[in-house]
Amino acid sequence: MAWYFYLIIVLAVVLVLFLLFTYNGLIRVRNQMKNAWAQIDVQLKRRHDLIPNLVETAKGYMTHERETFESITKARNLAQKAVGTGVGAQSKAEGELSSVLSKLLMVVENYPDLKANTNFLALQEELSSTENKIGFSRQFYNDSVMGYNNKIQMFPSNVIAGMFGFKTGEFFEIEVAAERAVPKVSF
């Protein structure tokens, strides 16, 4: 047989292997991204569950913060409704919730009795840890999205991604005013 026959076979095998590895690689990073997103969801749900308890405990002590409590409950309900409506909408609702919560936790300092309540302290540890977990899972999710998007957009994996209709992932950004700038406390 002619030499080019072997060449074609070799090329075909290389092509199939390339396809296989690239496709599996894409699937792997996409699954990692989806898992990371599920992790955020778990933590967001945990925050939604913790807030009513926190509000209930703090209400008795923080008599002057009625408005803050109302806005927290409202923001929490909105955030809960936003679950499953897509990364963008959910980011926005959670961002609102984070900023009203930070307002409440900033005035805790003014209520020494509340700070001595062990139940409240335990809730506060849980809530602040949940905030951290949301932050870290967001960090890991965004890193995963970055890795995935790089694969989709860079040659040669972008060819395969185009063929099988892989779409770029969306970053999860919680916009919190307090995170960007140091809050001003006026007395």
Binding site: Q124, E131, G135
Partner: peptide
């Protein structure tokens, strides 16, 4: 530092 984070914990 975490003292400046959103949910400042004592």
């Amino acid at each position: 530092a975490s003292a400046a984070a959103v949910a400042a914990e004592p």
